[in-house]
Design a protein around this nucleic acid. Sequence first.
DNA 1: GGGCTGGTGTCAGCACGGTGTCAGCGGCTG
DNA 2: CAGCCGCTGACACCGTGCTGACACCAGCCC
Lengths: 220, 220
Amino acid sequence: MRVLVVEDFEVLAEAIGTGLRREGMAVDVVLDGTDALYHLGLTRYDVVVLDRDLPGVHGDEVCRQLVAERAHTRVLMLTAASTVRDRVDGLGLGADDYLPKPFDFAELTARVRALGRRSSAPLPPILSSGDITLDAGRRIAFRAGQRLDLSPKEFALLECLLAADDRVVSAEELLERVWDEQADPFTTVVKTTVRRLRAKLGDPPVIHTVREGGYRIGAG
Amino acid sequence: MRVLVVEDFEVLAEAIGTGLRREGMAVDVVLDGTDALYHLGLTRYDVVVLDRDLPGVHGDEVCRQLVAERAHTRVLMLTAASTVRDRVDGLGLGADDYLPKPFDFAELTARVRALGRRSSAPLPPILSSGDITLDAGRRIAFRAGQRLDLSPKEFALLECLLAADDRVVSAEELLERVWDEQADPFTTVVKTTVRRLRAKLGDPPVIHTVREGGYRIGAG
DNA sequence: GGGCTGGTGTCAGCACGGTGTCAGCGGCTG
DNA sequence: CAGCCGCTGACACCGTGCTGACACCAGCCC
């Protein structure tokens, strides 16, 4: 399990790092928010142990950026203040768990381990192509970080195209997969739904039409 | 074992402290609610012996804040009044045990010891999403630090949604998990219970409907 | 230019989910 | 023991927005 520890108090940071490594985790330690974001851009971590009070880029900001684009990385927030208000704020930012200082080290490892399980657990099939991401488990789709509000059919259609991974999918196949029953072969639902989906996806267009072939998703 | 004694009658407070120390516990003694909250913010206690009638911040308030943010700390409430009403109130606030004054000192130490054992027991599963927290072990839930008064079914439903970790849970699955027996497939209990739960959770809405999919909890 | 394929505008039906309400029941209380 | 209250689940009703058909338009290829 890959863990990133972000904590400005160096002694504590190293102590956490050593402790987690002893538990068999692969741990990187950084001391400030800027460095944290740099590492997060390079490596796919399962869990981030994040101090809330950081010099430079604040822990809240790191958390926000992480949550905006993370699908798999879990966040455990550490904080000196332990008021309810703080707890609420932390979880509100998208942290997955919260631990007020001072904490028992056994508890920290237990929680990191728990988050790791959640992260690697039935890895929800997250599909993507270009700037489009779709989380099948959560039934959420994004374009360029912007949440898309899709109807069930639109969602299923998009899922189908993304699952095809930039290959061409014929209208017949879409009909079969998304509408599953044997519909009348002259139906126009597919093109109607594609139209609505395109409208919601916005510009630039990503669903390409292959004449006599079907539809294909992708930048090209 | 770390114990915090909160009692405004100084002679009694010191007596309790001395007695518990003689039992081998690490004890801090404070005389009012404000000081209690300060200490609770600094140190991780296993058990808090809490007098209900405190000057300044009332014992109930201390208890409420404590329960909301510290899942692992157990609370033993002391009270002068020994009515059933008081007992119910205390436990309703999240206290783990209750002792009416006057009490036998041997009983106090026995109970503190018992609570300490429970405290070091495996970390209770605390679920949360956004500003909602739920302690499955103690059957209590909070929104924004505010205690929620949920019926058993409502609680189970919320627990189920939180356990799904922001993923979509179908009505069938909820029916299966919360009502466990095989109910008639056309039942409307789920939507009725969701409605009641939503009403108690208040604004902004956190339980989202996914058409033809089910329900999902989360800020997004 | 004509025919064919695919995009667009529009509209009615309806399935799905939300809401109000009521009755049964079980447990507590006096 | 009787009354009360809160939880529960059923039912009926309602509004909404999804859906799919149809008619028409635009572009491409022969």
